[in-house]
Design a protein around this nucleic acid. Sequence first.
DNA 1: ATTAACAAACAGGCTGCATGTATGCAAGAG
DNA 2: CTCTTGCATACATGCAGCCTGTTTGTTAAT
Lengths: 199, 199
Amino acid sequence: MQEKLERRSNRDRTAATRAALLKAARALFIEKGYADTGTPEIVAAAKVTRGALYHHFSDKAGLLRAIVEAEAKEVASTIEHATRDAETPLDALTEGADAYFEAMRTPGRARLLLLEGPVVLGIDEMAAIDSASGGQTLLDGLRLADRDGRLAGVPLKQLSEMLSAAFDRAALAIAGGAREAPYRDAARSLLKALLLGKT
Amino acid sequence: MQEKLERRSNRDRTAATRAALLKAARALFIEKGYADTGTPEIVAAAKVTRGALYHHFSDKAGLLRAIVEAEAKEVASTIEHATRDAETPLDALTEGADAYFEAMRTPGRARLLLLEGPVVLGIDEMAAIDSASGGQTLLDGLRLADRDGRLAGVPLKQLSEMLSAAFDRAALAIAGGAREAPYRDAARSLLKALLLGKT
DNA sequence: ATTAACAAACAGGCTGCATGTATGCAAGAG
DNA sequence: CTCTTGCATACATGCAGCCTGTTTGTTAAT
């Protein structure tokens, strides 16, 4: 805690400053929203000046972009890890969905990835971030299931987008305090109905 | 075009001013987004002063709220009209989905209802607006189908929220220039799989 | 005469930039 | 191998412009 002001290498300074800014901004964006959080407030919380902020980030939106990219990467990695050793396509999808809900339980993550991000950065840029982070495991799962015979003639890309949106909404609801179980059941029903024809 | 400055009743003035503000703001919010549109720009486009704006609306967000409420009402009414005389629950849901896509083709509506609204007004207030506008036909349809036997044990409220989100995403994609047909097919597949056990 | 419907000026705050300063660092001189 | 020298990095600070919401003043309807 007492952070002696001793000499540090430039690399360490940069890392520390960036980390402090990202942490402070993340907390404030989650608590009050991007628009209602000013840069003076952010730098105060990070114990840094506005000069440092604009040295490390192009602008206020750049700060959000960095935060969103980190969150997206974590989510993608959690899902990928969880679906690695599934036996059937349905298992993979179900476990992927559970992992997604789990990853999105991290406080504030849903708001950042599903609300502030799309509005501030734009849908297109969010899509780019998602795919760069490897956020297409859902489509992969559907393609595997398709090879198994089911889903003939259904446009998979569009279906995966829509399912993804459904999971997003569930994650948002859960983040807002709703119980997780019913959403997980609903998700399971959806996937089962699609892949097995059973509700 | 030449709008003589003749005497008008107060009621007419109010109606005209509000309409001009709503129209101008709507166009600008769609074109540049809520955050990047200033009130000076809005009143200039509406040929009114900022005094008029703050006389009729509590603040800039109030302007967006009025716009969003109008859009939501139109969407709900379109859907209700389209599903009035469906024969089976699946028909009602399918036709409702088509009507929703149709209603959301109105340029900019998707952005207002699905992006700017939730972020600026908050999720809770958007939910209130939705339900006040009668946006729960989807849940009604699922309940009807449930009575028919299918969907036993599936949490309907959550399922309807998730399906609704799926349709939202499709509408957003279509608004962004994507072709409508594949999304409609995916939507149909989803509903059929749930209600009939067929993909 | 009273109130609605504006108009216009004002106060506070915020963003991005531009300029100034100190510190780390790499390379050459000695 | 050390030390100086020059440059780049990492900030700090003040300024300019804009924007929002409020307040005060004016005109027109009722």
